[in-house]
Every structure is written in structure tokens, then in C-alpha cells.
């Protein structure tokens, strides 16, 4: 009988998949060598799973929309400008903000791997890390944008920025019409993660 195998052997713990066992091997070895500290790993995970995310970037965009001087500083030296708001840290050492205009829409990719401005957007979504996006964003950006449901006017050119370990890009979307009366936090709520990667626009207020 196929279900009788457990009679003589009690069920053991579920065997994790191969890569998980390899992660455990790495962690064990590096901990024994004193090269990593498991508590520090937990802190890193907590930070990126729960604390750092696209709300940071959205706050930056909203500030740029209402404060022309900040916008100028952001476009001149984004790393320094976002540091004013307290957004610093790993993978945010050299951030460049690229501004959408009626003439030019910007979108960001990392063709090498998945470079991304962590302090502003958190950890990238699966599609940003997929071969399909990484290969197609440069080759056929308008088709990729169409897959995201975004069709741009023909007269607006698309510029694709390739992030690297040295330079990470943040798209500054255009401020939607009809948002004149909104305050900074209401404006930030209109700015999605995808709008700051350039695969969406800032949403119109509802």
C-alpha cells in the first residue's frame, strides 16, 4: 500500500530545496569564520522586507513637485537631495533623477543584473529582475510599456537608462493634472513604484 511507508519510520522534517541547503551551508561556514553575524542578517532582512520601500521615493517625487528649489537640487545631485530627506544607505550612493517631460519619457532597467536604488524603492519586483524585462526594455521599450498598459503619445520619445552598480536611476514622473490643491502626502500617494521605474505614470487623483 502506498501510504504504509511511515509505519516503521517517524516522519522527519521536510527537506528544504537544494538552494536553501546551500544557503545554510554558506551561513554556517561564514558564521564559524566570523565573517558574518546571524543577528546582522536578521536586521538586514527586517530593513528591506519592512522598512525601506517605494514610499520613500514617492515622498521625494512629491517634494520635487511642490518645491521648485528641491526639484532643481534633485536633478542636479539626487544623492545629496534625497539625503536631505534622510534617504541614504546601500545602493543609494550615486542616484540620478531623470525627469519625464512631454517630450521625453524615461524608463529604467539593469541589463546586467538588477541594480536599483534601494533606499528609495526597496528591493526590485520580480519582473524587474526577469530576463524578459532586462532584454526587452532596451530593444523594444514601447512594446514593454504597452505590456504594462502604458501607451505614450507618438511625439514623446522614450529614453532607457541602464542602472549599474555605480549609478542608479529614479524617474521623476510628470505631476498629474488636477492636483493643484493637494498637499505633499496626498501627492505622494499618487506615485507608484512603477511610476518611478518608468513603467507607469503618476496616477490622476480619484
Amino acid at each position: 500500500m502506498p501510504h504504509d511507508h511511515a509505519d516503521d519510520a517517524p516522519p522527519h522534517s521536510l527537506l528544504p530545496p537544494d538552494p536553501e541547503l546551500r544557503v545554510k551551508a554558506l551561513e554556517t561556514l561564514l558564521t564559524r569564520k566570523g565573517l558574518i553575524d546571524p543577528a546582522a542578517l536578521d536586521e538586514i532582512i527586517e530593513t528591506y522586507a519592512h522598512k525601506v520601500g517605494p514610499r520613500n521615493g514617492a515622498a521625494v517625487v512629491a517634494r520635487a513637485w511642490i518645491d521648485p528649489d528641491f526639484r532643481k537640487r534633485l536633478l542636479k545631485d539626487a544623492t545629496a537631495a534625497v539625503a536631505e530627506m534622510g534617504f541614504t544607505g546601500r545602493q543609494g550612493e550615486h542616484v540620478v533623477a531623470v525627469e519625464n517631460t512631454p517630450e521625453q519619457h524615461n524608463m529604467v532597467v539593469c541589463t546586467l543584473c538588477s541594480c536599483y536604488p534601494w533606499p528609495l524603492l526597496g528591493i526590485p519586483p520580480g519582473w524587474y529582475k526577469s530576463d524578459a524585462y532586462r532584454a526587452r526594455a532596451v530593444r523594444e521599450p514601447r512594446k514593454v510599456l504597452a505590456d504594462f498598459g502604458l501607451t505614450l503619445p507618438e511625439g514623446q520619445r522614450v529614453r532607457v537608462w541602464d542602472s549599474t552598480a555605480e549609478v542608479r536611476y529614479l524617474v521623476l514622473p510628470m505631476r498629474p493634472v488636477g492636483t493643484e490643491g493637494l498637499d505633499e502626502s496626498a501627492l505622494a500617494a499618487l506615485v507608484s513604484r512603477d511610476a518611478m521605474i518608468g513603467t507607469a505614470l503618476a496616477e490622476a487623483p480619484t
Binding site: 551561513e27 561564514l30 542578517l41 532582512i45 528591506y48 522586507a49 546601500r90 528591493i123
Partner: peptide, 23 residues
């Protein structure tokens, strides 16, 4: 709200690289 890490070992592997670079 998609989870940032789909599996705990993804998070663990991520943190290992970040921690080693920091060190």
C-alpha cells in the same frame, strides 16, 4: 502588497551578500 521575499531562503541569501559587502 507583494511580499518582498517569496521564501525565507531568498531573504537569507540576499542578506548574506549585503552583509559580506558591508564587511
Amino acid at each position: 502588497t507583494e511580499p518582498v521575499f517569496e521564501a525565507p531562503w531568498h531573504a537569507q541569501a540576499f542578506a548574506l551578500a549585503v552583509s559580506l559587502e558591508a564587511g
